[in-house]
Design a binder for these strands. Structure first.
Length: 434
RNA sequence: CGGAGUGUAGCUCAGCCUGGUAGAGCGCUGCUUUCGGGAGGCAGAGGCCGGAGGUUCGAAUCCUCUCACUCCGACCA
């Protein structure tokens, strides 16, 4: 992408409404634009990151055997009356009526709808288990939206729902998602720690919140220091096995939110930190399948009410949480896996023939190599270019200027460490395409 | 939902108390001088002062209503 034609409205000054660093940086980096309280438009750069995050979520869901579909944002109130939640959900649910005065709502979650779809088509135990997910916009009419997309009213969420014949199967489905979630966040370059959670009004007896540690987190959390060295990608348990040992290992290490924290059970090596909830998984049995009649015929010919679980990742919130966990005074520091672009190609002197032709050539070669590159070909001053690239957090900055060209080198800077190397062009190219 | 605020240029804000031709910095456009971490100069564009009523010869400014947004708290499957 050439920066001269990219819609990237970066700001030098911080808009006054932004209180937390991720909100400030998302506004300054031209990622989002607020359109109403708690409602945001995602501009090209923000949308690109949101899609990268979504894609990792998607790949790990697929790997865990879940299947993607897409349910609508607008739902009929009838389904919610069946489950009893139409009244119970309260004012957080945005209720609307259509031209025929039919009661509708903008979905805050999809348990009712997925259960309805499931029960329509699945009639036999032979078709179990099933795990279905979608990545769709949700709306919860928060009393007081704040912190940008961290606590917005409209947000992008991955939610999925598992259906099993019995509790044993449901617990296996739960463990599979537990692994998928650990892998998902690990692949994004962040550490999300599962913490035993209160199941709350949704019911059920097994639930974990996935919490990212960040100084600016919204709640206090406690965990064993051992968590900091856990590496689920290195552990790589067999996703097709029963996952019992893996689950025991990872739930055996102390981690608790403030509500669940018990000082007496806490280990000596306790880390106290702030945390941001980015995912939440539940096993809730027949809470929805019973009232809504999600019943299959069992092996003995008798009806069985299916056992369900639901699993959510706040995809848009993850984007903000990543920034909370990874930034400095100059701006965002994207982990490589979710960065909107891998390489920033900076032409320091746009009207210099040698610089321009070298950059154009490099740009073409990077594109051919399949590297996601943003090319600053603008006729701006060097300082502005460096500042913009630091702000939007591109992992590698490849700087071409007249001084270096004369010496036969280019500058390669790593955003995360600030480390700068003067390298021959081919060497730098090899490094960023590796 | 309680409490406190704010709406003036794209952004950050001044002007309001004490009514009298709409302001600054940054950004934007052109020229110029520059050019390795958001330089300088000159010239310019850009506003129904959130909206509606009222008071007044005259309202960004005073009064009433209204809408939007922000912050603190409570809330947050």
């Amino acid at each position: 992408m050439r920066m001269s034609s990219y819609f990237l409205p970066t700001l030098k000054e911080t808009p006054s409404e932004a209180q937390i660093v991720s909100h400030r940086l998302m506004l300054r980096a031209g990622m989002i634009r607020q359109t109403s309280a708690g409602i945001y438009a995602w501009l090209p750069l923000g949308w690109k990151v949101l899609q990268k995050v979504s894609q990792i979520v998607r790949e790990e869901q697929d790997r865990a055997g879940a299947q993607e579909l897409l349910m609508p944002t607008i739902q009929s109130a009838d389904l919610w009356k069946q489950s009893g939640r139409y009244e119970a959900y309260g004012k957080e649910m945005l209720r609307i009526t259509d031209r025929h005065d039919r009661e509708m709502l903008f979905g805050p979650t999809n348990e009712e709808m997925i259960t309805d779809i499931f029960k329509t088509f699945v009639k036999s135990y032979k078709d179990l288990p099933r795990n279905l997910y979608h990545i769709q916009w949700k709306f919860r009419d928060e009393v007081r939206p704040r912190f940008g997309v961290m606590r917005g009213r409209e947000f992008l969420m991955k939610d999925n729902y598992s259906f099993d014949l019995d509790a044993e199967g449901a617990r296996l489905s739960y463990r599979k998602m537990f692994l998928a979630y650990l892998r998902t966040f690990a692949r994004m370059g962040i550490k999300a720690i599962p913490m035993r959670a209160d199941t709350g009004p949704i019911g059920g007896d097994l639930s974990h919140e996935f919490i990212i540690l960040a100084d600016t987190g919204e709640s206090q959390v406690f965990c064993d220091k051992a968590w900091l060295d856990m590496d689920v990608l290195a552990d790589n348990p067999d996703a097709n096995g029963d996952l019992k040992d893996f689950f025991a290992k990872y739930t055996g290490i102390y981690a608790a939110t403030e509500e669940m924290h018990d000082a007496e059970k806490a280990p000596a090596d306790l880390v106290t930190a702030r945390g941001i909830e980015v995912g939440h998984i539940f096993y809730f049995g027949t809470k929805y399948s019973a009232p809504m009649g999600a019943v299959v015929t069992g092996p003995d010919g008798q009806p069985v009410t299916v056992e369900m679980g639901s699993y959510g990742i706040g995809v848009s919130r993850v984007v903000a949480a990543l920034i909370e966990a990874s930034h400095d005074d100059a701006g965002i520091i994207w982990p490589d896996q979710v960065a909107p672009f891998k390489v920033a190609l900076i032409n320091l002197k746009a009207d210099d023939e040698a610089c321009r032709s070298t950059c154009d050539g490099l740009y073409a070669r990077l594109q051919e190599a399949g590297v996601d590159v943003i090319y600053d070909d603008r006729n701006e001053r060097p300082g502005a270019k460096f500042a913009d690239m630091d702000l939007i957090g591109i992992p590698w900055q490849l700087t071409i200027g007249p001084r270096g060209l004369k010496a036969g080198t280019v500058e390669l800077k790593r955003r995360a460490t600030g480390e700068k190397l003067e390298l021959p062009l081919e060497e730098a190219l090899a490094k960023v395409t590796a």
